[in-house]
């Protein structure tokens, strides 16, 4: 069965890259444009793993992760943070919010698929 990935990113460029990469790697991809939309589509997306950006309008990645972790049904879903923020402080905040792991941009398909495989069964 195809694994379902929910991606949350406000950049159209990155969304398209994620879509192409994930679809070609055999994942089913559902996309949201910011944290608010990400939480809204959680139910219908029913993801096996979530990939989210940090800097987004309306609700940023930290808030989104906290929201997922508070959701009774989806709190166990692994969340990967996809961001250019490589410094310890940002990683730390994401981790505290409940992120499972991270992928340091620039966007690299291999790193992405690799990280997804690491956190999914």
């Amino acid at each position: 069965m195809k694994k379902r990935v929910l991606t949350v990113d406000d950049s159209r460029t990155i969304r398209n890259m994620l879509l192409v990469t994930l679809n070609n790697a055999g994942f089913e991809t559902i996309q949201a444009e910011d944290g608010v939309e990400g939480l809204e589509v959680l139910e219908t997306a029913n993801p096996d793993v979530i990939v989210t950006d940090i800097n987004m309008p309306r609700l940023d990645g930290f808030g989104f992760i906290e929201g997922v972790r508070k959701n009774d049904r989806y709190r166990a879903v692994p969340i990967l943070v996809l961001t250019t923020e490589s410094d310890a402080e940002k990683k730390n905040r994401a981790r505290q919010a409940g992120a499972t792991g991270w992928i340091v941009k620039p966007f690299d398909p291999t790193k992405l698929i690799d990280a997804i495989e690491r956190v999914t069964a």
């Binding site: 987004m56 250019t84 966007f107």
Partner: peptide, 22 residues
């Protein structure tokens, strides 16, 4: 603060995409 955030995001976003294309 949202104005500052939006400005930051704009540059951040450009950087992110530009990085992916080298």
């Amino acid at each position: 603060p949202e104005t500052v955030n939006a400005v930051f995001r704009a540059v951040h976003s450009i950087k992110g995409g530009a990085g992916a294309f080298g």
